[in-house]
Every structure is written in C-alpha cells, then in structure tokens.
Nucleic acid binder design. Structure first.
Lengths: 349, 349
DNA sequence: TGTTGGTATGGTAGCGCTACCATATATGGT
DNA sequence: ACCATATATGGTAGCGCTACCATACCAACA
C-alpha cells in the first residue's frame, strides 16, 4: 500500500534509494540501518551483514543534507586561507587534502584575501552549516570572529603561527624567530648593512620584520632607512622593483632579507640584469624555501617552513578531535630550518 | 502554548531562530517568510517590509542544510581541479572566487590529483549533495564520470580546454593550437632543431606536444629523439634535470619548448649555470606565461593563457545557468597569446 | 523468584525548510 | 450577473535522516 502509494505520487527527490528502502529490503527498521552506518558496534554481526548487503544491492548512499539536518552536524570542515595564489597556501592545502584522505569529511574552502572582515563574513557563513571543525589562518582574528570560533561548538585549529591564547588548537611556528635566525646567519656570514624588503605585510610578515629588527638591534646594526615595505601583494616583479628602489636610495647595502621567496627571486633577477654579484656584492635571502630556490643560479638561501606538514597536521588534529580522540598536544610548533646556499656565502672581503 | 512547549522541551538545535520564529514575530506564515527570501517579487511590498524587519530583529539566517533537504538543491557549486600546487589552477580558482563574489553559492573544491578515477570518486560524493552546478577540468572524463555529469541535473562547465561534444558548457582554449603557435614562432626566429621537454603529460600537455609535432612536421623538421617527457609532476628542478639530460643526449639542439613555465625556468637556470647563452646558443620557450617569465634574465618567451578569466567566466556561466538566465554561448574559446621575449630572439647567426 | 542491569532493536517525533495545492481577493471581459 | 484569470497568502505534508525513549530479551545477582 505504502509502496504503491509512493509509486503513484510524484516524488520530490530524484528517486534515489533512501534509508527506508534499505530498511524494507533488509527487513529491519530505518534506525538500524542508520546505526549500521554510524555505530556498527551497536548492531549484531548477523544483522549488520544483512543490512550491508541491502545497502550494496541498492547502491544506497546517505544524503548528507538530511544527515546534517537531523544531527545538527555536517561533514564539512571549514578552512579559511588568506590567498589562493600564494603557493605557500597551495602546499598547506595539499597537506590538508592528503590528510583528509578517505575520511568522510569535506573541505569547505574560503578565501579571505588577507581581510579580517572578509574572514568574519566567511566564518558567519561557515558556522551556519554547523561544520565538524574549523581551520583558520593566523592568530589575529577580529573579536567577532573569535567569538564565532569559540561558540561554533566544534574543534578549531589556528595555523601558520603559534602564539599565546589559542582558541582551541594551534599548528605553526614563530615567524619572529625565523626572521631573526636568517638575519643572524647573514650577520655571521659577514654582512653588515642588511636591508629588508617586504610585500603585503600581513601579520606574519610583520613578525618576520620584527625578527629582523631584533636581530640587528642586538648587533647594534639596525637602520630603519633600509627597510622597504609595501602593502601590495607579493610578486617576482615587485621584488625586482623593490630592490631597484632600495639600491637607488641606499647603494651601500651589502645584503637584503626578502620577506618571501617571490621577492627574493625578483631581487636575484634584478641583480643579474644589473650585473650585481650575488653573494659578494649583495647577499640575498628569502623566506619559505620554495623548490626553485635551490635551483636558481646562484642558489638562494631561505628559511624552510613546513607548509605541507602544517596542513597535514592541522587537519589530522581537527579530524581526531571531531572523532572524540584525545588530542595530546593542543599547540604544535613545527619550527623552521635555515636553508643556507650560495646567495649568502658572504661579502667579497 | 506552543511557545511554552518549545521552551520546556530540550531543543536539539543550537537554539538559533528559525523561520517559524520570524513568521510568528511578523504575524505571517512560515511560507511567506520563505518567499520573502527566495521570491521577493511574489510578496506584497508592505508585507515584505514587515518580514524583513522581523528577520533583522531576530538576526535570522536560513539553515542551508534544511533548505537543501527541502528543495533537493544545495547552494554548493562543486569544482574539481587536478592540482592545488600548480599555480595555473591557483589563478583559475582566484577567478572563480572573485566571480562568485557576494552570491549565495559556496564552492566545494575537490582535488583529483590528475587521476580520472579520483575525479570519478569526487563526482560521486559531489552529486550526492545535489549541487547547484559542477565545474570540472578538461574533457577526458571517464564514461562513468560523464554519465554522472549528464545526470546530475544541474549546469556543468568543463574548463581549461575546448573540444567537440561538451557535456553542457565549456570554457577553454586549444592547447594543440597554442603549442603549434609557439613552435612556429621558434621556427620563424630561425631555430631549426627544436626540442620538447614535458612533465606530468596529462591530456592537455599531450595536446601541446601534438601541436609541437604538427608544427615541426609541417616544416619537415620533426625529430622524435629530441622529445623528452616524464609522468613526474612538473617542477623547476625537473626542468633543470630534463634539460641537462637532453643536452647530454642531443648537444646540437638549438631551442627547447618547455611544456610549462616551471620547466622553462629550470632550463634557464641550468643554462646560466652551464654558461649556455640564451637565446643565441639555445632558445627557450615556456607555457602559461606566469608573472616571473617577464622578470627573468633573460626574459622568457611563453604562451599567455587566460587562467583567471577561465575561472571567472566559467563560474559566471554556471551561476547564470543556475539562475535560469539564458547562456548565449555554451562553448567559449578564450584563446591565447604569444608573449615573445628575449629568450627566443633567435640563434647567433 | 524477583530484581537489576545490560544489550539489541524498534517507534515516534522531529531537524528547518519548501513544494504543492487550496483558498481568498481582486480584475476584467462578456 | 456570471465566469475566467491573475495575484497574494496560507495549510499541509513531506525532504531523508537521527535523537530520544521505549521495549523485549537475556544473564546475573540477592
């Protein structure tokens, strides 16, 4: 009767099998089918086998929207990154996608374009979907964003940096320390008049600049006039332009720490074009250690950051937390490593 | 009565206002509230104002999951790209995110890792969510994938290439023609022994190689022994390695067409390191015209492709189609442009 | 023997929204 | 006056799933 009824009526859905169809075929109730899918342990082995056979024979796949509505929890993990063009985040995302692997979770990716306001807007959209977890970039959320994260009722991971007072979990490293370390290396190599060029100048760039300042202050070699920054997005051509400007204003610099590798590559090209000897006339260091840095000629020194691992680890922590596993460490500092190459071998005596 | 009842019962949801709360406050039925949000034209202006005030005063935001369940249609637009690391797709995605702008749609991003089987798996997941539209990369879907796309009941856009027999809509260009064009340019510049290096060799790389072959065949200068490819993912270091290998096997080549710009950059670095004069001893051309190509020294010739536009346009077509607007052109060829620079200026006499 | 407690399954009632149809009122033509 | 048509709103019944509670059964205990 009911079956015939359904056949006669025009159904709204696309006619795909539902949990009720599976239940009918297996001779059990719908809730038992649900349990086979969500809590297999709560169903006897015999029944489970029956139900699984019915699922397979109908090709049943649960409807994620119905599931989310009924359980107030979707399989979506929201991820907000500030840029899709910056290859740093491409690596992070690759790690996340690899980490999520065959699990049932879906990544919902938002692009904040380095705007805290846009991040706030995205968080408002994401939290409505009752995500399983949220991963956000950096530690400088607006108060409203922070409140949303705290009240989202799901695990939250802040990535790319470490800092005090995490919302929940954190995976990153200290940009200040990394900036200070590469500048210390430049000092050790014998450079004395070390400039800084930086683009975008988001909070993490600012902290790298702080590291640069701290390192030079400690050596008594700080000089604010050779720090050159712009809020414009980073690019190779911008690196060329910034170095050109810098050299015209301060021709006596002997090294430059570039806020990231794009700029460093642009700076290197400018040196090649102007026949400036790297590393003897000018030392050049970048940040992030993109793959091309080792191939360039001369090869470029940089700070290796564990971008893929940040993505992989943060997603793993999020998924573990969602599944109720105890996350032992809530703040993970992945550190960094100096990749020292030809471009900072030291000034020609 | 009902209100008190709800207050006493433990509610499942997070206690956020629902459409019923808005309806009660505005003194209308729930369906009218729904219409104000979905079809404002069907509600009188007076009532609309009332309802909108109620929505604002409660801070009501619709639940996307309930909406998707009731309407058999989610606000998700599924996008499948083969790589997140390849900056080509970063640009495409940026175009898509810009295009989707303030619209209510959400991008659900899948990474197929250049595997048609993985693409099939992702499509199975995506179609379960009854997406508003689907955007896939390339035209070489498996038969099963193609069937899913045809039966998804939503607009579908294939991007990055054009070809016969679109599933629905298409935005791209001819990789064969682009490959043929840059090789013709090399011939015109006076190069005669033009090699090819290629990585990944996905279908689009194959078609660029075909263009290379066609162009050389027409000139009677084809030589299969100087075509060097690998299924390994493309990278700058791979470009260096491939060129090194190539030169050791065929030292007499006078130009090389690199399947993409990463390889071309690696090739250039290898030339710098080995003191090979570019463009006089060896012409070098890339593909895609990434921003750094113009900055390199010597600047590198490439084929400019409209990646951002492909993302922007494809998303616009998808959204227009979802909203029932007539999409005039279903297959858009965005073409390409040769970016001719120092690296292919011609062999030394 | 009755009680307790655990385990396996089912029934009911929603989750918050919209499709579909019904109803009420206005408009116009004959 | 009638009917046909259009416009504006409401009522009902789900969409497909799971939370919550009830029930049946069995074993173990006093």
């Amino acid at each position: 009767m009911r079956i015939a009824d359904r056949g006669n009526r025009k159904r709204r859905g696309a006619g795909r099998p539902t949990i009720a169809d599976v239940a009918r075929l297996a001779g059990v109730s719908a809730i038992t089918v649900s349990r086979v899918l969500r809590n297999p342990g709560k169903v006897s082995a015999e029944l489970r086998t029956h139900v699984e056979a019915a699922i397979r024979s109908l090709g049943y796949v649960p409807d994620p929207n119905a599931r989310a509505l009924a359980s107030s929890r979707s399989d979506v993990i929201g991820v907000i990154v500030p840029s899709l063009t910056n290859s740093v985040f491409a690596d992070v995302l690759r790690g996340m996608y690899d980490s999520i692997g065959g699990s049932p979770y879906q990544i919902q990716l938002g692009n904040s374009r380095y705007s805290p306001i846009e991040e706030e807007r995205l968080l408002a959209i994401f939290t409505r979907q009752r995500p399983s977890a949220l991963i956000v970039t950096g530690i400088d959320q607006t108060p409203a964003s922070r409140t949303m994260l705290e009240q989202a009722g799901c695990p939250v991971v802040q990535i790319m940096e470490t800092g005090p007072d995490p919302v929940d979990m954190m995976v990153g490293f200290s940009h200040r320390d990394a900036g200070a370390a590469i500048v210390s290396h430049l000092l050790q190599s014998g450079y004395r008049k070390i400039a800084f060029i930086g683009a975008r100048m988001d909070p993490r760039s600012q902290r790298r600049l702080q590291g640069y300042r701290d390192s030079l202050d400690a050596a008594g070699l700080a000089d604010p006039s050779i720090v050159m920054t712009t809020p414009a997005p980073s690019s190779v051509s911008l690196g060329r332009d910034l170095l050109r400007d810098l050299l015209s204003r301060a021709p006596d610099i002997d090294a430059v720490f570039c806020n990231n590798d794009d700029l460093a590559l642009g700076a290197l090209f400018e040196c090649q074009r102007s026949a400036i000897d790297v590393p003897r006339r000018l030392g050049v260091a970048g940040f992030n250690d993109l793959e091309m840095m080792a191939v360039a000629s001369p090869s470029l020194s940089s700070v290796r950051t564990y971008r893929y691992d940040m993505g992989y680890r943060s997603m793993k922590m999020a998924v573990d937390a969602v599944q109720g596993q105890d996350v032992e460490t809530r703040v993970v500092d992945l550190g960094f490593e100096l990749a020292i190459r030809e471009s900072t071998a030291g000034p020609g005596k």
